[in-house]
Amino acid sequence: MASTLALPKLPLFDAIARHDPNSVAISHCLSGRSFKYGELLPDVCRARDQIYEAAGKTDIRGERIAFLVENSYDYVVTFLAILASRAIALPLSPPFPAPELQYILTQSQASLLLYSAKFASKAKEVLKTPWPEPLPNTDPEFKPTLKAFELSKHQGLPEDNTVFDTVTITDDADTEGAGMMLYTSGTTARPKGVLIPETALTAQSRALIEAWKYTPQDRLLHILPLHHIHGTVNAIITPLFAGSTIEFLFPFNADTVWRRFANPYLESLKEDPVPDAASNTLGKGVSRYYARERRSNIVSFRHK
């Protein structure tokens, strides 16, 4: 029997709960793996509980929760789980050097660092990096305390699965403390954390839906970094509000991107369109996905 889970009444969770549970929310371009809307919120609930366990408490409202997760379904689940805990999501850029990441962790006074298996070695390197001296914040009472936790990878349900755990959206609409913190580039001074509350994330996403006309029939090929506003708000939160499909292509490769754009318009994909499958491949997963797109006539991409 399906279990019952609960999430606070954030507008984004309300929207996701109303989408067709059998439609694809997230897909991975190279592997062909996909995740449906029906499994997204249950996974968010379980990830939120993991965060509580890692933090050692169930009230982390307003705390900065940093995370190192690759562009994938796991990133989306982690990000939404932090919002569900009414904490502030602090996405980190994996290519940043360890001292720069340590600076961000210290300056933001992050209480928890979440990381995927892919970036376990990077996280350990950051944790071994000394805290900057003097500490880059203005609170003289601040003493660095940072916990770290490795997140489990989501394998997804079978493609033919149509039964999902029930998620209850509670009447608690208090979103105080929830939001995201992004760091400036630091071109004129050291990077500074910019707090974006959940209400601003929602307002921006709704404005984009109206301006760009996102629909459930849209497929967004996601090739952007996820520690920037465009990659997160324009290309994750907004399509999730609209019920669109987000397709992650990671890591970025210009030739692969152009071939992916071309795939829906080719007559056939009987052979792998990229010769060097080892270093620059779309893989068989994309061919399978293309076949599903052809059958359903869903071939649009958002790449403004």
Rank of each mutant, 00 (worst) to 15 (best):
E70W: 02
I229Q: 08
V233I: 15
A291M: 07
L80V: 02
K213G: 06
L30M: 12
G38W: 03
G156T: 05
G243H: 08
G193A: 09
A242P: 08
K304M: 12
T238I: 07
A120C: 13
S205Y: 04
K153E: 14
S111T: 13
F142D: 08
A178N: 04
A25P: 05
E133F: 08
V77K: 00
A200E: 13
D255E: 14
L113H: 01
S152N: 13
C45R: 05
W131V: 14
R302S: 12
L146P: 05
F164R: 03
D171S: 13
C29F: 10
I237C: 13
H28I: 08
F261Q: 09
P99A: 04
P140D: 07
L83M: 12
N297M: 09
R46F: 00
L105K: 01
T202R: 01
R206L: 15
G186W: 06
Q102E: 13
L127F: 03
F261Y: 15
S72D: 11
M1P: 12
K270I: 09
T199E: 14
L12T: 04
S121I: 00
G193N: 07
P216K: 11
L182C: 09
F119Y: 15
A262L: 14
P225K: 11
G283A: 09
A200T: 12
T168F: 03
T168M: 06
P94M: 03
T129L: 05
L30I: 09
L10D: 12
F149C: 12
L195F: 15
L105C: 09
Y214F: 15
I51K: 06
T202C: 13
R302F: 14
S72Y: 03
K284R: 06
S296G: 00
P130D: 10
A262I: 01
Q50A: 11
T175F: 06
R259L: 11
A89S: 13
A278T: 15
L151F: 02
L105V: 07
T232L: 12
P273D: 06
S116K: 02
I223F: 05
K192N: 09
